[in-house]
Nucleic acid binder design. Sequence first.
RNA 1: CGGGAUGUAGCUCAGCUUGGCUAGAGCGCCUGGUUUGGGACCAGGAAGUCGCAGGUUCGAAUCCUGUCAUCCCGACCA
Length: 502
Amino acid sequence: MAAPKTAITPTRQDNYAEWYQQIVKAADMAEVSPVRGCMVIKPWGYALWENMHKELDVMFKDTGHENAYFPLFIPISFLQSEAEHVDGFAKECAVVTHHRLTMNAEGKLVPDGLLEEPLIVRPTSETIIGATYAKWVQSYRDLPIKINQWANVVRWEMRPRVFLRTAEFLWQEGHTAHATEEEAREETHTMLKVYEKFAREYMAMPVICGEKPSGERFPGAVATYSIEAMMQDRKALQAGTSHFLGQNFARAQGIKFQDRDTQEKFAWTTSWGVSTRLIGALIMTHSDDNGLVLPPRLAPKHVAIVPIFKNDDERVTVVAHAKEIKKRLEAQRYEGDAIRVTIDDRDMRFGDRAWYQVKHGVPLRVEVGPKEIEAGTATVIRRNTLAKENQTIDQLVATVATQLQTIQNELYEAADKRLKSSSVRVNTRDELLAFLGDSEEGSMDKGGFAYAHFCDRPEMFEWLKQHRLTARCTPLDEPRTPGKCVFSGDATDTVGVFAKSY
RNA sequence: CGGGAUGUAGCUCAGCUUGGCUAGAGCGCCUGGUUUGGGACCAGGAAGUCGCAGGUUCGAAUCCUGUCAUCCCGACCA
């Protein structure tokens, strides 16, 4: 059977949504589980998450945060304490009402032992953590509290999509409490910048930092900031959020302290998080029609050595040689880590093994067979370009870190070029529609980021909804210039980014 | 949660309209052989209580009811 032209079918062009699912499958990232809306994250996907976790954790600690852990279950009364918060999350809460099972007459297990107060499975932890902080804080000397938790949360979503929107997902949530508004705002901003740095430097994913318009704000927040990324189908994906919660949650949870001036005051709190959605973002930013493409800084393996052999004799020689190369590569460092190398000498045909590594997105593939051993070289193939090059082993070892950095840079530049070439400035609603279109799901015909003056009124959100568009954010680096709202015609100095979104 | 579609072997699906004998194919998997520098070929083989629970019937993958799940479109969302 002839091989298809691309390793992944359909291609991005043919059906983007299906292409995404096929990438996840071909790269062994995850699969749907027997549990509604929940995914099984497979080792290759989880290794990627572990790398994200590891790098982010360092960044959190460098900005003065500590890790802690709070309960999975939250009493319903806690959720109720902040009105907007209830509105935002009540509809998607999993609820625990019983605490044991018994066997009924038909031999079926049924819930028994009704709880006095039902518990929800945390959709986010502002309330439980806030209630805890309330006990910890009495004096201004107890502030700030800067804690992060790595956890799983549950949001009973109606339309799950692997990594992008699952009922249960893994994330980190930072929760801080401060004595002053200024300090809390600063914290919100600092963490947004941490996310931006992580997206750009580790994920090789350009993002726009901005404040969410009122209609997109976190339930209960005074201000929500996000990093917005553009996927290859030119739809926006919110990749991380940082919320300034004002004193809303402090009031609701009773986080009070006595200040220097002897007055009792409510604390100012923040929360911020990124989730396994980042994996989805990574996939849709870099991958191509041949499978996953991973940025070297996060790739579980930097290099896959694929030995070529015809028979057992050759196999012994070539694999021994491959192990030598592996050892030498592992002695090199890239961005502070030892080079991560795997040898794929599985009992499979060479072509299958080569394609396996392509589909799994390993940045560098090194092929060695009897011919290379003879010549003292290796065939080196870069995943992002699939360009082949003959390199001596010495050359490879000496330049492997540089080659990885080149790939990292090229991935960022390609993504940045896409972002910039798909961003326009629009001055009317018609221009907005002409640019973003009303095109079908999965179509890549139209899309991108449209910059427009706007004044954040309910009518705008109504109109956007009708056209399946969203207001992403007001970019922080966008200068305030006088203009007219493209929706109402009123004068405004605020510019927003509009896009179709995930 | 509303509208639509689909659940048959590990995967993709045919069979269902018009109920009938031992439920099929391709891919994958296992064994043997030939191959092996780019996703192999030949031969043999294993594998399904037809999503689940009821009902109609002499007889149900097929008809009816319920239920669960998945996908698509809305609403919701990290």
